[in-house]
């Protein structure tokens, strides 16, 4: 009897948090218009989530591209087709690794910071103070941050791809001695602007939206204690990463088959 009650309570609690999420999303959408009007707030957040994520994106992109070229060259040289290493590196970066790895780093670097910031605002009753002054915290705090994420992550993904291809070029042409002309020619032959690049960008936009909603919802609904904020931050990173990886499979199966 007791176990059954536990199961019931757990399911009801899940259902309730799902309903809260739905309410949150529906209240955010109209507020996004406000964020467009007061773009100053968004600029500040783009600095926070975008510019400050730039060092980690640049470093990670360079090394991911270099490792891809190194591993690709190792395998492709057994078939004597080292020239394809360029198109292999570029395609993996554009289709999968650019959007996904950038999103994972973004969730860890920016999403967690957003949750902690909003959670702390809640626990120090700044959100309540805003409401007291008749300022809607969804409009003033949440919407600019969501818009900033949706703007910043696609840009970071593009930068990740570009620096990754450059890293692949350094390793393949500079170190392993692949012919430079063949490297770029094969890449241009196989990478399609519309099918590959724009679909990769679309992935980044979807991931940005999911990460933004999760991090701000977790911050907004965090228990207003130091432990609650720390739990919410952990949940943001775990849930965002799992959602990005799961959605990536779904999007890939729709886009590239």
């Amino acid at each position: 009897m007791n176990g059954l009650a536990k199961l019931g309570r757990a399911s009801l609690w899940r259902l309730q948090s799902l309903g809260q999420l739905a309410l949150f999303v529906f209240s955010v959408f109209p507020a996004l218009g406000y964020a467009f009007v007061h773009f100053r707030l968004v600029i500040k957040q783009v600095y926070g989530v975008g510019v400050l994520s730039l060092p980690i994106i640049l470093t990670a992109g360079l090394f991911v591209g270099m490792v891809l070229a190194l591993q690709g060259h190792y395998i492709l040289s057994t078939f004597n087709s080292e020239e394809i290493v360029g198109s292999m590196t570029a395609l993996s970066l554009i289709r999968e690794l650019g959007p996904v790895v950038a999103a994972l780093l973004f969730a860890g670097r920016a999403g967690s910071a957003l949750t902690a910031e909003v959670g702390l605002m809640k626990s120090t009753e700044q959100l309540s103070a805003l409401e007291m002054m008749a300022i809607d915290p969804i409009k003033y705090v949440v919407a600019p941050r969501i818009l900033a994420c949706v703007i910043a992550l696609p840009m970071l993904a593009l930068i990740f791809i570009a620096i990754g291809v450059f890293g692949g070029y350094l390793v393949a042409v500079g170190w392993l001695g692949v012919d430079e002309g063949a490297f770029w020619a094969q890449m241009q032959l196989h990478v399609d602007w519309h099918d590959d690049v724009l679909n990769g960008l679309l992935k980044a936009i979807v991931f940005a939206f999911v990460i933004a909603i999760i991090s701000l919802f977790q911050g907004y609904e965090a228990m207003p204690t130091s432990e609650g904020v720390s739990n919410a931050t952990t949940r943001t990173v775990v849930q965002s990463s799992l959602w990005v990886l799961g959605l990536d499979f779904v999007l890939t199966s729709i886009m590239f088959t």
Binding site: L54, A90, W193, D196
Partner: peptide, 21 residues
């Protein structure tokens, strides 16, 4: 943020002209 947009534009131009068709 202007610098970030500039780097993005350079990356996009690189991807469009050098990497893709």
């Amino acid at each position: 943020v202007g610098l970030l947009v500039l780097i993005t534009l350079i990356s996009t131009a690189f991807i469009a002209l050098k990497v893709s068709n």
